[in-house]
Design a protein around this nucleic acid. Sequence first.
DNA 1: CGGAATTCGTTCGTGTACAAATGATATACC
DNA 2: GGTATATCATTTGTACACGAACGAATTCCG
Lengths: 153, 153
Amino acid sequence: MSVPGKLKLVEEDRKAEDYRLDEQVGFVLRKANQRHLAIFAARIGDLTPPQFATLAKLYEVGETSQNRLGQLIAMDAATIKGVIDRLKARRLVALTPHAQDRRRLLVDLTDEGRTAIEALLPIAHEVTDETLAPLTPREAATFLRLLSKLADG
Amino acid sequence: MSVPGKLKLVEEDRKAEDYRLDEQVGFVLRKANQRHLAIFAARIGDLTPPQFATLAKLYEVGETSQNRLGQLIAMDAATIKGVIDRLKARRLVALTPHAQDRRRLLVDLTDEGRTAIEALLPIAHEVTDETLAPLTPREAATFLRLLSKLADG
DNA sequence: CGGAATTCGTTCGTGTACAAATGATATACC
DNA sequence: GGTATATCATTTGTACACGAACGAATTCCG
């Protein structure tokens, strides 16, 4: 017999009725993400997380091609395209064709984009802190370690 | 036995250049989610996670109103509408007007939907297991505990 | 009782996400 | 050197996700 309420959720003794959606990693992961998104939106309403990630990464690595940037922030080509289009429309990034490789499109921060991201980085730190606030510092460190293992497979 | 100065990523002494996107909870959360989605899609290609969650929850609680169902699986009214529309088009759920409250629309599994979810629940367990596979059972338990704290705020 | 506030579902608009197909260009290698 | 293969960006189509505004129905409360 399974003992409900104990922390043993191992792969034994399972029946269909044992499935509780609210305890599945995927579901909780989605909810955790939702909470983070809400915190992000409350503090950085002006930019979405993917848009912010794009600027932050560009700030970190400098000019790169669109696809490579997508790889760096784990977005596929179709997705990054839209993000960059919107950032470009707001003049936060600029595109120039690659001199040697005519397939490529180089993306870089504009001065305006650089100013924006520099102003946002401290706030982004706060977003991280607030997201992790339910955990003690020790728990947060553990959590991040395990989360990274999970994310990287 | 604590390693002095090693894993101290506390909120001290920060500069803008200290921000590394790849270490922020939000970013890693998004990547972990992506990995989970890929595992889910590989095993349950036929249904999306929101669609699956909808069926699983209906299986758990039985007939409910559309909005209440949305609350149970953390989806807003606009989102659940689309999900239910698509499930309805595939005859996995059926809608009936509420007898007393004419604003409400009751959703329930069809026989076909019930059969489908019953067949999928064991596979869903495997999805959870595979997602958690990078962690030891002990780590997985810790992770889920911390993740829940994070998700619930 | 009756108007105010709430709830339920719907629609619209914007922004991810990703698969699949496409065209243009580059690289490999035979 | 020229074709097979790979890469880069784009487009199309589907599916969340959520804010905001809306009409219809219900509940609250004075």
